[in-house]
Amino acid sequence: MIRIECPWCGPRSEAEFTCGGQSHIVRPADPAAVSDREWAQYLYQRDNPKGLHYERWRHTFGCRQWFNVARDTVTHEIRAVYRMTDLKPAPGGEGV
């Protein structure tokens, strides 16, 4: 069981949340200009690290807001929670 600190509602059980997968994915600025391979990378390629993972979560059964979480995929420990518009915290830095 993971306890997640929602930026709006405070600490809640994992059961209230939905994981939206990897965060900080940037859509190509001009989709018509990229190759099929680059477009497939954008659509389907994910980091899938064994360790620190930057991912999106939604408080589905609460405030319904999206936010970012830096979480270890082996221990499931949450290292940082930050808002959608915040920059990715550096690994090993404050809170990560």
Partner: peptide, 16 residues
């Protein structure tokens, strides 16, 4: 389980 994981144990909400 509903999130990426390498922890070979499984999370309780899915078990439940």
């Amino acid at each position: 389980d509903t999130h990426p994981s390498y922890g070979q144990r499984g999370n309780l909400p899915t078990t439940e």
